[in-house]
Simulated scan of single mutants.
Amino acid sequence: MPIPKEDSVPMKPDRLRQAPPFQHLIAIGTSTGGPRALHAVLTAMPADLPAPVLIVQHMPPKFTKSLADRLDAGSAITVVEAEDGMKVEKGVAYLAPGGYHMVMIQDSSNVYRIKLSTDDPVSGHRPSVNVLFHSLVPFSGFKKYVVLMTGMGSDGAKGMQELALSGAAATIAESEETCVVYGMPRAAVQLECVTHVLPLHEIPGKLSVMIQG
């Protein structure tokens, strides 16, 4: 996937100003039932969210662009299908494109960027939540808030455990009562790496309180 011509994502009109470096980052993994769950969380985020949001939703190629567009239309923050080389900025949600692993890297100028690859599937998936979460472990310059929502299987649980052990500010699993499939969150709970188990409608509020409070 080519590097975009612009260095960063075009911001919505009320946020065209230059953003300072972020101090918080949200990472979300989800699968079956995920589009509804992502809509519930992202549309509740304030326009001035002081964090980027990195998202892996298990979905085939060509479907993630339309999902990103739908989420963007209903959200105060900007939601995009991630492209290789995009600068990671607060107030923007980056959705991993179907068929590509997504990680975050820091370039030679210390700028955080998206990196995409077609490496082998992990946990049976590409994109894989574990791949994204694992890429965030080395970074210590900001607080990390990690979320696993509805989905079949266990992708993301080991990555969440790694982030918890490396000092993540919070690890959140969607509770069984609101999951379409209580698989991925259950796997994380079983690894005893979850700080908060919350129904879907409470997740965005908890994130806002922790980040902005």
Rank of each mutant, 00 (worst) to 15 (best):
D84Q: 10
P46F: 05
L42P: 02
T43W: 01
S66P: 01
P61C: 12
K65Y: 07
R70A: 14
D84L: 06
M86Y: 10
S66E: 07
V56S: 04
L71A: 12
A96F: 06
V53E: 02
Q57W: 08
A93G: 13
M59S: 03
M86W: 07
D48P: 02
A51N: 01
L38H: 03
K90H: 12
A76P: 02
Q57K: 12
I77S: 04
L95D: 11
A73T: 07
L95R: 03
V53D: 02
D84W: 04
P61Q: 05
A73M: 13
P61N: 08
S75D: 07
L38P: 04
V41N: 02
S75V: 13
S75H: 06
K87Y: 11
M86N: 15
V56M: 05
A96G: 14
G74A: 14
K90I: 10
E81R: 04
L38V: 07
M45E: 02
A76G: 05
A44H: 10
L71S: 13
Y94A: 08
A76Y: 10
M45W: 01
P50W: 00
G91H: 09
D84A: 12
M45G: 03
D84E: 12
G85D: 12
K87V: 05
V79P: 02
A82T: 12
Q57P: 11
Y94P: 13
D48E: 13
D48G: 06
I55H: 04
L42T: 01
L49A: 07
K65H: 11
I77Y: 06
Q57C: 09
H39E: 13
P52E: 00
A68E: 03
L38M: 10
A40I: 09
S75I: 14
K65L: 13
A68V: 09
K87I: 04
P46G: 05
G85W: 04
V53I: 14
L54Y: 00
L67T: 08
L67M: 10
G91A: 09
D84C: 14
A76I: 06
V79E: 03
